[in-house]
């Protein structure tokens, strides 16, 4: 069987199934990771001493340990405490936790880049600190954080392949299974690479469109 037929008939069907799983992982992980990252980043900058401390510890911990280790702990470690997750759920939890740690850094930096005068002017109008953060500071900060967060989201598209390590058969996992069965790694992994490239291109273009939509003169 030549390469093209092999790819078309044998490789692509399972890879498409794997791609669907990857996409499903991303659909949950990207928004949840971003939301958690925003909460952690906000807590670090504007939380009281305890909240700020806890959020900082979170970031140190989950940015400082390998994602693979986190996934292993979630999937293989937690059952010893009586906590069981499906492979898919375990992977999503790991991705959300890890990407949130990175997002929180971008968000924190963006918050710190907003001039103090914005908060002062908001409070001078009679806004509470919370109102000022929500209505004035955050809408500016998120625009500044977006390029950094986009980068993290693109990483996430690729490190979603680690889900296979907790037996969630996504794109890379599906490929590994096919490749091993037929012992034809080159074709299979080239196709996998191309599929990731397509996904990354789509995601980064979507993010670019979002950045452009949110763009405001003089901000960002």
């Amino acid at each position: 069987m030549d390469s093209l037929d092999f790819i078309k008939d044998i490789v692509l069907p399972p890879l498409f199934e794997g791609t669907l799983v990857t996409l499903k992982l991303l659909v949950f992980s990207i928004p949840l990771g971003l939301v958690l990252g925003i909460l952690i980043g906000t807590g670090r900058v504007y939380g009281n001493r305890i909240i700020s401390f806890l959020c900082t510890v979170y970031t140190i911990f989950f940015r400082g340990t390998p994602l693979l280790v986190q996934l292993f702990v979630i999937y293989y470690g937690l059952p010893s405490l009586g906590i069981y997750f499906s492979p898919f759920t375990a992977a999503v939890i790991g991705f959300v936790i890890c990407s949130a740690a990175y997002h929180s850094e971008y968000i924190r930096g963006a918050f710190l880049s907003i001039k103090n005068g914005q908060m002062m002017a908001a409070q001078a109008l009679g806004m509470s600190r919370m109102q000022a953060i929500v209505n004035i500071i955050f809408p500016q900060a998120i625009r500044r954080a977006l390029p950094g967060c986009s980068n993290e989201i693109i990483y996430l598209v690729k490190y979603s392949s680690l889900a296979f390590m907790v037996t969630c058969v996504e794109l890379t996992g599906a490929g590994k299974i096919v490749a091993t069965r037929y012992f034809r790694y080159t074709e299979v992994f080239l196709v996998i690479g191309a599929l990731y490239l397509i996904m990354v291109t789509i995601v980064s273009n979507l993010l670019k469109v979002m950045e452009r939509r949110l763009k405001i003169p003089g901000l960002g």
């Binding site: 914005q118 002017a121 001078a124 009679g126 500016q140 625009r143 405001i216 003089g218 901000l219």
Partner: peptide, 27 residues
């Protein structure tokens, strides 16, 4: 009290992400 005490700053401190109109209406 702050609602009733207007303040105008040296460096304006307009909300950078809002138009002039929305700067005035947000309060």
């Amino acid at each position: 009290f702050r609602q009733k005490i207007g303040m105008v700053f040296q460096d304006f401190n307009l909300f950078d992400h809002l138009t002039a109109l929305r700067n005035v209406e947000i309060g």
